[in-house]
Design a protein around this nucleic acid. Structure first.
Lengths: 193, 193
DNA sequence: ATTAAATATCTTTGATCAAAAGTCAAAAAA
DNA sequence: TTTTTTGACTTTTGATCAAAGATATTTAAT
């Protein structure tokens, strides 16, 4: 904590409060009273996360389809193109950011502050897992699903959009689960870095 | 904050952290940098809460129906009877507690740690609104809906159970919204007590 | 009499400090 | 060689303090 405070040129106190907030959100955990880290999720917890994400984000997509506008669809298309470009040029970080923006553009269009908050918290927990297990290898499939999702949304086909979204979520989890069982079950917590 | 610390016989520091965690969960808010209070929700935010609760708790009920056991159903029936008794004898506090247990017995049966957490956070935000607007007057209707919900669950009728749950949630919000418009739009935040 | 400004008091927020809890390593014993 | 115990060091957690921000009250002026 002292090192974080020094790195950010602030006193340890704001760092403490920030960390306590992140712990309340489930993004950080105390590792045996000595240090702080990202909670490493087991297969069961990842499966739980997958199921809940499917339900919650399905609701968001359904509402977004109902609220769709021309400007909204244009934004999605822009992001989609940038993702496809990032894939072809192999820009991992760019792809990840646009993927985030694409999904949250949809969830924001649902028009529910609360639902957006819930989904943000879910992503806050799942994102580090992707980064720590570093397996970003399925962009082509991902982009195919994103385009299909975009088309279902523009067609006003909420049911089809939900189905496509579920496939997108599921395929990401297949990658994670495969990596997890390759590496075996690690310790309860994974430290930062 | 000092008063809370004194009342609990602890130093102000643990109180600070507890409050910061509750703020992260949206259960408390800073009122103009001077004091802390329960966020008072407007009609739009209450409506948002209602819609999101319907979606999320519907998922939980659906999963609970799939996971139902004899012991689970027995527990629901016990709680149901205690709620009906509390209604007939006018024990408000008792009814509120059993209502909480009844709902969360169902949500726990869904078997999802995450979903339970999400619903808990939603209830953490909505419960103070009920208490502050104090209108606990619709127990008879509520108990009718609870018994219907119980029967749909035991019958394995997930769709019917979801429909009943939605009615239960909706009728609670009708009471709140009616009270809110009677009182007019109050200040942004309502202090504790 | 009412309104505006200034001052005083109250309360959070940031900082420094002390103490307690825990882990890692080293040394000794089996 | 391995295991256990002890000691030292690191790091959180609780406490006290100072400062900054905000509100309420009082006073003065219009």
């Amino acid at each position: 904590m002292a090192s974080i405070a020094k790195a950010l040129n602030v006193s340890p106190m704001p760092v403490r409060e920030a960390i306590s907030r992140l712990m309340a959100l489930g993004a950080l955990t105390v590792v045996s009273g000595r240090s702080i880290g990202v909670p490493l999720l087991g297969a069961r917890q990842l499966e739980d996360l997958r199921k809940v994400r499917c339900e919650v984000e399905a609701s968001a997509v359904t509402w977004a389809v109902a609220n769709r506008t021309a400007k909204f669809e244009a934004k999605l298309e822009t992001l989609l193109k940038r993702m496809e470009e990032a894939e072809s040029t192999g820009q991992v970080r760019e792809f990840i950011h646009r993927n985030y923006e694409f999904h949250f553009a949809i969830y924001a269009q649902a028009g529910s502050e609360l639902l957006l908050e819930i989904i943000s918290t879910l992503w806050l927990r799942i994102n580090p897992q992707f980064h720590l297990l570093q397996r970003h290898g399925h962009y082509k499939a991902s982009n195919r699903q994103h385009r299909a999702l975009y088309e279902r949304i523009c067609a006003g086909d909420a049911e089809g959009a939900v189905k496509t979204l579920r496939e997108d979520i599921d395929s990401a989890y297949e990658v994670i689960l495969k990596t997890l069982e390759e590496r075996g079950s690690p310790s309860d917590y994974m430290l930062t870095r």
